[in-house]
Design a protein around this nucleic acid. Structure first.
Lengths: 211, 211
DNA sequence: TTGGAAACTTAACAGCGTTAAGTATATTTG
DNA sequence: CAAATATACTTAACGCTGTTAAGTTTCCAA
């Protein structure tokens, strides 16, 4: 029977159409314009039809958040060619910040908004795979740095949390406009962030080249 | 003429009633239940009356955000008795994290949500006074650390951004549930955060006591 | 051809922030 | 004191939001 297969395929096509429409709205009109009705308009179905393919809006946003991680991966591909783990760590931070500042809407979805995490509850396999994977890469690099005595030692889990928090803090404060009125005069926020990152990593440097 | 004065006083009283009601909703029912209609219900006026005392909802949220800073000040009072700036810096971080984790709704309003910053635009004196002041204290402490050769030197503005971002990153990732599925097993997130902070500050220590 | 399942729509609920227009209630003026 | 004006407040509505229940159309198999 080839008919159930074709049916299944069509179902997937509509699912894809919904996600494409969501993405289009998200990219072209911003997060606040991604609504069930607007998605339905774009795919030329009634609003309630969307609910036959996705449990709720959170599930759609979860999928967009996954696409954000894909986009992020584009920023970080060349990292894995870097041999020196400390240099890689530094670049990791730089690229993370760059991704966040250049894709604030995606960043929001990935690391700030509750929606994708709420979708994660209420899923059978409710691990945060994307986040886990990214953090894993960070931990690996940190472990390498520790193994090669390149940085001050510590609990790798705690180090990873700190490192991630540092760059996430920078990006999230920036895109939520907490630096606007506060970062003094002539220095651009992005410059200051990278300076801060450099200072931090320099301090971590176990070789003791403190300037 | 004492009548205009009494009028003025009444106006302020209603303003206060609105803010009290907002706060009540905020504290007892959470941010998502602070709505113009519910505020109006509580003060027993019609929803539109609220607009005679506040330009819009953002302006109300701005005021709540200010109260958040007051509450935060309660957590940090004893900091200013600490003589050693490096110890003070460490405690600053700890108290910041503690405040954030114990008051996630306030923290949201103060450092994550756009609403208060949008209210700030559209004000005559559109400085972010509270944020500026808090960051100022951090910079002072960092400057003291630098002056006394307690930490690795650097651009104080960049150092402040980094330090703030570290703790903000931790709190915001935690309260937006990014640690839930990712922070491994038995170690509690809060413990890991403080470990991370300690590791960070230990690395900054200029005395070279790297463990 | 008919019965039933699957796909889709209509209508509605209950909420949201906000505005325009209308109605009371004071206060000031003639 | 009465009329005019200014102030305070309300009613009704607009245009959204996510979501559900019930009804309709379309398709496929017996």
């Amino acid at each position: 029977m080839g008919i159930p297969e074709r049916k299944e395929k069509q179902k997937l096509e509509i699912r894809k159409a919904i996600l494409d429409a969501s993405m289009k709205l998200f990219v072209e009109q911003g997060f606040e314009n991604v609504s069930m009705r607007k998605i339905a308009d774009l795919i030329e179905y009634s609003p309630t039809t969307v609910y036959l393919y996705f449990k709720d809006k959170n599930e759609i946003l979860y999928n967009l958040h996954e696409m954000g991680f894909q986009k992020m991966a584009e920023y970080t591909t060349e990292l894995w060619t870097i041999k020196n783990p400390l240099v890689r760590l530094h670049k990791m931070g730089e690229y993370y910040i760059r991704f966040g500042l250049e894709n604030p809407a995606f960043y929001d979805l990935m690391f700030i908004l509750q929606a994708p995490m709420e979708a994660l509850q209420g899923m059978e396999n409710c691990e945060w795979k994307s986040g886990d994977q990214a953090l894993g890469k960070l931990k690996e690099t940190l472990q390498e740095c520790v193994d090669k005595n390149l940085i001050v030692k510590g609990d790798v889990d705690a180090m990873a949390i700190a490192m991630w928090s540092l760059v996430h803090g920078m990006v999230s404060l920036a895109i939520r406009n907490r630096f606007d009125k506060v970062v003094t005069g002539n220095q651009e926020a992005a410059v200051l962030m990278n300076k801060g990152l450099t200072w931090y990593l320099n301090a971590l440097d176990a070789s003791g080249n403190k300037t």
